[in-house]
Design a protein around this nucleic acid. Structure first.
Lengths: 194, 194
DNA sequence: TGTACATCAGTGAACGCGCGTTCACTGATGTAC
DNA sequence: TGTACATCAGTGAACGCGCGTTCACTGATGTAC
């Protein structure tokens, strides 16, 4: 292979992270093999270890990357409660339910994250705290109580999306999403200062 | 091996279901091998296929069994809102967070359930609907709107327990549980007829 | 009552396969002279 | 300007291992005679 300029290897690593994120969210972490991940990224299995120490190392990096992307998406919304309402409606939509690969890493992987290495759980905790603190700031809410209220509201969103995916009855699935939009917005409004 | 009485094989099947339920909830479905499951149950790998057609078949039977147990547990609580409050507090407790193996199958496995066969998702949908309808009946609530409200409240409980397990900061984990008790009870009270 | 046999839950070795990981090798290009 | 060489991202075969599944076999007991 060619000798590349300085950014090339970094770009390949980023490409592996992107495609691995999608794969992991669709098939699970245990359900996705390194060889398949690399083929998705247009490479062969052997090249993996030039970019990551191990699959565990990739998992931690991929969680960090996914939460960075989610945070960036949220920072692009209009400020205040209006942007958050938009977020809640998009999150609890049939499109998000049916598009795991492009969706929220928490809703697709949280069961497995709880079983991962200390490093991965650390990175998840940091990423989620950053996101929730951003949301609190947008609402003008401060302090640990506001953070807890927003984590609780986010928990409802994660749980509702997961239930809507697990259930095989389309009208029940749609009903769960619709109801949880109302409930999530109620909890979020209660977290904003009056 | 000995020739056994009529109940023997049924009892063995039940033992496999119990131990598999615990294993799957601790290590995940993809993370638990048939040989290990059988060793847990005091048998060797080959005996498995005398009881189940495949690992997929076991997974569906195990989800049905786990939800049956959860439903039986709920039916043993005192009737009315008092029993439900007790359920919510036990569900969102540090003991449940730290005891995946003995806990709620939804909180441990819902990500994976969404990726399972049609048969497993069918069984999950039926089991969850039965549980939620029982809760609605206890509250004296009826109809699809009450069902949706209770599914939404249960989604909050599932999501909050999962978040409390995924996060590596003990005080954040405890804070999420404490806050979500309050929020879950608010949503459940709002689902009861006035 | 005593013995030969049918039953069948469970055993354990073996199957092909994909897993995570290692490593000797390739080959296009930047650099040195 | 032309050529030899060092670099290093990526290749692809191979490693030991555990996976889900199959199957010929075992052996204690109920039943037939």
């Amino acid at each position: 292979m060619a000798r590349y300029d300085a950014e090339h290897k970094q770009a390949t690593r980023q490409r592996i992270l992107e495609t691995a994120g999608r794969r992991f969210k669709v098939d699970g972490i245990d359900g996705s093999g390194v060889a398949v991940l690399m083929k998705d990224a247009g490479l062969t299995n052997g090249a993996f270890y030039g970019h990551f120490d191990s699959k565990d190392d990739l998992v931690a990096a991929m969680i960090a990357d996914q939460l960075d992307r989610q945070r960036a998406y949220l920072s692009g919304l209009e400020p205040g409660i209006a942007g958050i309402e938009r977020f809640v409606r998009e999150y609890l939509s049939p499109a998000h339910r049916d598009g795991r690969g492009d969706g929220c890493p928490s809703s697709a992987l949280i069961d497995e994250i709880a079983r991962q290495s200390d490093a991965t759980r650390r990175v998840y905790t940091e990423g989620m705290t950053a996101i929730v603190d951003d949301l609190a700031a947008t609402l003008g809410a401060k302090g640990p109580a506001a953070r807890r209220k927003l984590f609780s509201a986010f928990a409802l969103m994660v749980g509702a999306l997961q239930l809507s995916r697990a259930v095989d009855d389309p009208s029940l699935s749609a009903g769960i999403l619709a109801r949880s939009v109302v409930d999530a917005l109620t909890l979020i409004r209660a977290a904003a200062p009056t």
